[in-house]
């Protein structure tokens, strides 16, 4: 297979893996208004859970050697459990506290990944992570895995769309849009928000598991906050609230990210290339600001009455 084609397969696989995380974020933020900025943490939990569950103990690493399917499911369960842990204390509070708690979990997960070599391989990371459908379509250079990832995207997309358009999904939107509706639901509003957080995080966990299976090697360096920023960029650009927008956003943002990275490598002197990330962040950040200011609904987001800051209940009503 030609270099361009295999690069395209690589590009699409990565974008598709990202898109599963942004579908999860769309449920949390786009539909429920949950402010998760620890996406990289849930992604990491999924990746590590998958790796630990599936790696063969024969490699001399901490691994259980489970089948890959069990690994994928285990990754989702693990990410869901972490979401429960963060959600219970913070979902009753102002949105900002969930944000702080989620970034806290992302940092804590990274600390554990770095400091528990018996579990995570420490800074060396874990390698020889089994890949599902490896060896299928022999010689196709990863097309089989890309197809598997795309099937996962489709399944997650369909499942989330079903949920979003069910009565359950409409309650989520009601809670997000209308404070009085939320408070009249009382305790159950909390439970709806928690369910949304957990389900969205499970998608992020699946995304992490597929990432681990795709790259076959993970270390704490793979789960930096920049990942969270990218997923947010994908969702906002694509259109917060729309699953199709999340998919499109993933493709567009990842394309811009990859292309700009390539251009920077080609155009800038070697000294400045060390940290091309700064320029990429400026680029994506600028794009995001323009979208937020001039097209807040994103590329595919549905138009909905904007929630003005001024109509937000003032800080103290007491």
């Amino acid at each position: 297979m030609s270099g361009v084609l295999s690069y395209l397969v690589f590009f699409l696989t990565t974008a598709a893996i990202y898109s599963i995380a942004s579908l999860g974020l769309n449920l949390q933020w786009g539909r429920t208004g949950l402010f998760n900025i620890g996406v990289s943490g849930f992604f990491a939990v999924g990746a590590y859970a998958y790796a630990i569950l599936t790696i063969s103990p024969l490699t001399g690493q901490p691994g259980l050697g489970w089948p890959v399917l069990a690994g994928l499911l285990g990754a989702m369960v693990a990410a869901g459990l972490f979401a429960l842990l963060v959600g219970i204390p913070t979902l009753r509070l102002r949105d900002d506290y969930l944000a702080i708690a989620t970034i806290g979990i992302a940092i804590t997960v990274q600390l554990i990944a770095t400091n528990e070599p018996e579990l995570t391989g420490g800074t060396n990371g874990l390698f020889a992570i089994p890949q599902p459908v490896a060896g299928w379509l022999h010689g196709s250079g990863g097309v089989a895995f890309l197809i598997l990832v795309l099937i996962c995207v489709a399944l997650v997309y369909l499942a989330l769309e079903r949920m979003i358009h069910s009565p359950w999904g409409r309650v989520l939107v009601a809670i997000r849009e209308d404070e009085t509706a939320a408070s009249s639901l009382g305790k159950s509003a909390f439970s709806f928000r928690l369910q949304s957080l957990v389900i969205g995080s499970m998608a992020m966990g699946l995304s992490g598991a597929l990432y681990a299976a795709f790259i076959k090697f993970i270390s704490p360096q793979d789960f930096l906050p920049i990942f969270t920023f990218q997923v947010w960029a994908m969702l906002i650009l694509g259109g917060s609230g729309s699953s199709a927008g999340a998919l499109l956003g993933s493709l567009v943002v990842w394309a811009i990210w990859t292309l700009s990275g390539g251009l920077i490598q080609a155009a800038l002197p070697a000294k400045l290339q060390v940290d091309s990330g700064a320029i990429q962040i400026i680029l994506i950040g600028l794009l995001l600001m323009l979208v937020i200011l001039f097209r807040p609904s994103g590329l595919l987001g549905r138009k909905r009455p904007a929630v003005h800051r001024s109509t937000v209940p003032s800080k103290e009503q007491a």
């Binding site: 944000a99 990330g277 937020i292």
Partner: peptide
């Protein structure tokens, strides 16, 4: 962004700014 209709635009922006400044 203070004029934005997206309530948490500021927080997301500060998250982006933090990444950028670090780089």
């Amino acid at each position: 962004l203070r004029r934005s209709s997206i309530q948490v635009a500021l927080v997301i922006a500060s998250f982006g700014a933090s990444l950028l400044l670090r780089h």
